[in-house]
Amino acid sequence: MRHRVRTGATSKVPAGSVREGTADGGRPRRAVRIAVYAFLVAIVLCGALEIEAWPLSAFRLFSTVRTGTQVRWELAAVDDAGLETPADVAAMGRGFRQSVHLLPTLAAASAAEQDQACEDWLEADRGARRMHVYRSVYVAEQPGAPSVLQSRAQQFVCERP
């Protein structure tokens, strides 16, 4: 006879089919249930208090309204001839690809921390003589129109010794 499984909101276990707190499908132990509730509360708290604690997250995915004004942090490489181009962090390796996102933090960091980061970028980009870090503001008149540089402020510079 085929056993029909109930799916409703019930926790009643057919008598004799499973045992409490065992690996054969019984009701989970109290410690597991506490862990489940703690986990669910942690997810909600990280969202409410905007805590990022991998893998828990505040889930602020695209949560800020975008406009035609965009602030970009830029890392520029300057070669021996003085030519300045956007630093190719992707070519520096996987460990460098997201480093542009650290620029706001580094701009506020100590000179020693800035120098160390710069040294590492210059080490990864042998063709560069100097690195410049900028905070730039770009403006587009309407979606689809070209973004035009409105202002650019140099945050810090470093040079190969």
Binding site: R6, V13, P14, V18, G26, G47, L61
Partner: peptide
């Protein structure tokens, strides 16, 4: 075979999934 020990990981997983999307929307 039915059992609470088989059912809760799916239900809690479904709850977590809903919470994650809900939080993304609420933010």
């Amino acid at each position: 075979r039915p059992g609470s020990g088989f059912g809760w990981p799916v239900r809690v997983g479904l709850t977590v999934l809903s919470l994650v999307y809900l939080l993304s929307g609420v933010q």
